[in-house]
């Protein structure tokens, strides 16, 4: 067998000896503050007087449990999960372009607050075979708040 190639060693050595290109620094550097400086005061939300608004606000905060996978704005790109905007009242599996599990598509569920409550309490128990593996909320109060928040973005 013949092997018809051999790069000359010398050229590679020269290559290695060449200094690297100067490495570029930032073309734009926005310094917001220096380490150790006090953080900019962020506006502290005043507690909502209206209990319903307070529940929605609590739900918005608790949605942090969900936001790694789900957006909640209209026409958002699907992430790991589908966008949840406007989901209440719609059948399961309704968001275009999202690859739902067969189990969820076949569930026949119309999302109501009660159905959603049961689902996020324990997704795999409500719809065995769902690909939603995270985000279960054990506490009823928290589920109520998150659902109120999702509903608030469904009614409008």
């Amino acid at each position: 067998m013949t092997i018809a190639r051999a790069l000359p060693l010398l050229s590679l050595i020269l290559l290695a000896a060449c200094s690297a290109d100067p490495v570029p620094g930032p073309t734009e550097q926005i310094i917001v503050r220096e380490p150790g400086d006090a953080a900019v005061e962020t506006a502290v939300a005043t507690p909502e007087a209206d209990p319903e608004l307070a529940l929605i606000a609590a739900g918005k905060a608790a949605f942090a449990n969900c936001s790694a996978c789900h957006a909640i704005v209209a026409d958002a790109a699907n992430g790991v999960g589908p966008t949840l905007y406007g989901m209440i009242g719609k059948p399961a599996g309704a968001v275009d372009g999202f690859a739902y599990s067969d189990a969820l598509n076949a569930s026949g569920i119309i999302w109501t607050a009660a159905e959603l409550d049961a689902f996020i309490a324990n997704p795999a128990a409500k719809i065995p075979g769902t690909t939603m593996v995270a985000g279960a909320l054990a506490e009823p109060e928290q589920r109520r708040a998150v659902i109120a928040y999702i509903e608030s973005l469904s009614a409008s």
């Binding site: 608790a62 942090a64 449990n65 790694a68 996978c69 995270a134 985000g135 054990a138």
Partner: peptide
């Protein structure tokens, strides 16, 4: 992974396994 898909971040919260990358500290 940051999206509860790989389990590398698993901790127990009151004994239950949770994906800590997707569970806020408020929980």
């Amino acid at each position: 992974c940051g999206i509860a898909q790989c389990g590398a971040c698993t901790v127990h919260l009151d004994g239950q396994p949770v994906r800590s990358c997707s569970t806020p500290i408020s929980q």
